[in-house]
Design a protein around this nucleic acid. Sequence first.
DNA 1: TGAAAATATGAATAATTGTTCATATATTGA
DNA 2: TCAATATATGAACAATTATTCATATTTTCA
Lengths: 95, 95
Amino acid sequence: MDVLFELSEFFKFFGDTTRIRIIHLLLSGEVSVNDIAEKLNLEQSVVSHQLRILRTANLVKPRRDGRKMFYSLDDEHIGLIFNTGLTHILHKKGK
Amino acid sequence: MDVLFELSEFFKFFGDTTRIRIIHLLLSGEVSVNDIAEKLNLEQSVVSHQLRILRTANLVKPRRDGRKMFYSLDDEHIGLIFNTGLTHILHKKGK
DNA sequence: TGAAAATATGAATAATTGTTCATATATTGA
DNA sequence: TCAATATATGAACAATTATTCATATTTTCA
């Protein structure tokens, strides 16, 4: 498969407000599905749907503890990309 | 405006095959609209439409030379984000 | 000045994608 | 095992967005 196509697919996962908010929340550590929904004021099913997308794309990884599922960022790259983008737009705003 | 919303909007620009291919092409320097269309085998109007999006979002900047318009990446962050994403997916593939 | 070349734009269509609502699955503890 | 809790999933709908096609601008040069 074309790597540029894969790259654009990869960036799509960052290109949604709900997912970016989830990623932002997970920057500080693992959080359960219900806690994500509560803290971000989202419906549980919205969170589950988006978590599945993020999980499938290897942006987050799940850990089961009893009947709860805790999600965390998959690796350092995710935070790095998040922060590079953030730096860019803050830089642009500062002008 | 919420900075997380802006950030997701920003990443959206990378989340399209046509735009990623344009960004990739511009990594090696400025290119005219027709040359972009020709090298990427795209219709001219597709390129113009996407360039307007990229220009509005400050991802690329135009320079007029006669009747030609040359486009280049706006700043280093664009290439940095591109490469960080690329590194990530190549890293994932390597596993 | 007028034609040709290069780029930009507008409207319509097609395709993708996020959310909603209902329901299914899985785990724990009584 | 049964009820309660936590999470996941499926289908339908709504909204967003990329592409297409036609046409409008802008600039150069004969």
